[in-house]
């Protein structure tokens, strides 16, 4: 059963790729992926919390009594989320404003709690961190992908980070932005179609 660190890391990138293979943590996926930048930021924030909580849960796994483990995980995760909130306010304030309520909600993201419980509580520190990094990076990539798709369709542009942005209209002047994609119903439909595509590739 022992897997190498590399395996623990790479499984998050395809085999257990959230949210497509591991259909969890959908709220931020739907809520923040209006642009690629948002998706990327959310992904990084989640990865940070995931790594921190996995690390700490794995370190403390002997000390935490099984019956209150969920409450303990929640405390650890909540602490990390607050740290992220504070750091984001201090360094990436505009992004913090855009992500809004979804930053505190990382605390109830099933992926974070799920990995703490299903993996970190049972595995040693190095593999837990590898697992968290893999899942986190997978999540970040998925969010960015969905974000860029929706941004391209809906705004006709793609903002990588800050001022670095490209516009489709420069290339294809006749392009009409499909605003539906950036709005709420579009979020569901785009994610549903992405899932479908992943299913097709997975087959």
């Amino acid at each position: 059963m022992a897997k190498t660190l590399k395996q623990e890391f790479t499984k998050g990138l395809w085999k257990d790729l959230p949210p497509f293979r591991l259909v969890l943590g959908l709220c931020p996926v739907l809520g923040v992926t209006t642009t690629m930048e948002n998706g990327l930021g959310m992904g990084v924030a989640t990865t940070f919390v995931l790594c921190g909580s996995n690390l700490l849960v794995s370190l403390l796994r002997q000390a935490i009594p099984p019956r209150v483990r969920i409450a303990c995980f929640v405390i650890i995760i909540a602490a990390f989320v607050t740290v992220v909130e504070l750091l984001m306010q201090a360094y990436t304030y505009p992004l913090y404003l855009k992500l809004g309520v979804f930053i505190p909600l990382i605390v109830v993201n099933c992926i974070v709690l799920g990995r703490a419980e299903a993996f970190a509580y049972k595995n040693k520190v190095s593999s837990s961190v590898a697992d968290a990094l893999g899942i986190g990076i997978g999540f970040t990539l998925s969010l960015s992908l969905l974000g860029s798709l929706r941004e391209l369709l809906g705004n006709g542009s793609l903002t990588i980070w800050g001022d670095l942005s490209y516009s489709i209209i420069d290339v294809v002047p006749s392009f009409q932005p499909f605003t539906f994609a950036t709005q709420a119903p579009g979020a569901f439909v785009c994610l549903g179609l992405m899932l479908c595509i992943i299913n097709l590739i997975g087959k």
Binding site: A63, P65, R67, V68, A71, C72, I75, I76
Partner: peptide, 10 residues
């Protein structure tokens, strides 16, 4: 023990 761990962590 449960209470102590929870409180301590918090």
């Amino acid at each position: 023990r449960m209470t102590v761990v929870l409180t301590g962590l918090a």
